[in-house]
């Protein structure tokens, strides 16, 4: 698999680390929203929004990737 880092261009998978589903962190005390953030997953068979890090340049990325085909339709900086 190859991902396109917005800084470094298209690079081999071995330079990247998957960091979990791209969810928004809740606030406040433990409750269903936190449970959903920490544990529950849509786990889609299809388009999946994920955090990844390009380890070598340290950029955290938001990746739109199909879990059935591994086709990557978009990569941006995590908070672009």
């Amino acid at each position: 698999m190859r991902l396109t880092c917005p800084h470094c261009g298209t690079r081999d998978l071995r330079e990247f680390t998957y960091g979990g589903a791209a969810l928004e962190r809740p606030t406040g005390d433990w409750g269903p929203a936190w449970d959903a953030y920490v544990h529950l997953r849509e786990n889609p068979a299809g388009a999946s929004f994920e955090w990844w890090q390009h380890d070598v340049c340290a950029t955290w990325l938001k990746v739109d990737r199909d879990t059935r085909t591994h086709v990557i339709s978009q990569v941006t900086e995590a908070r672009a």
Binding site: M1, D12, L13, R14, T17, Y18, A21, N43, A45, S48, E50, W52, R65, T67, R68, T69, H70
Partner: peptide
């Protein structure tokens, strides 16, 4: 392989 997948196949690293 460390990324979510339903493809039943992995990559070289």
């Amino acid at each position: 392989d460390f990324y979510p997948s339903y493809a039943q196949r992995g990559n070289l690293p």
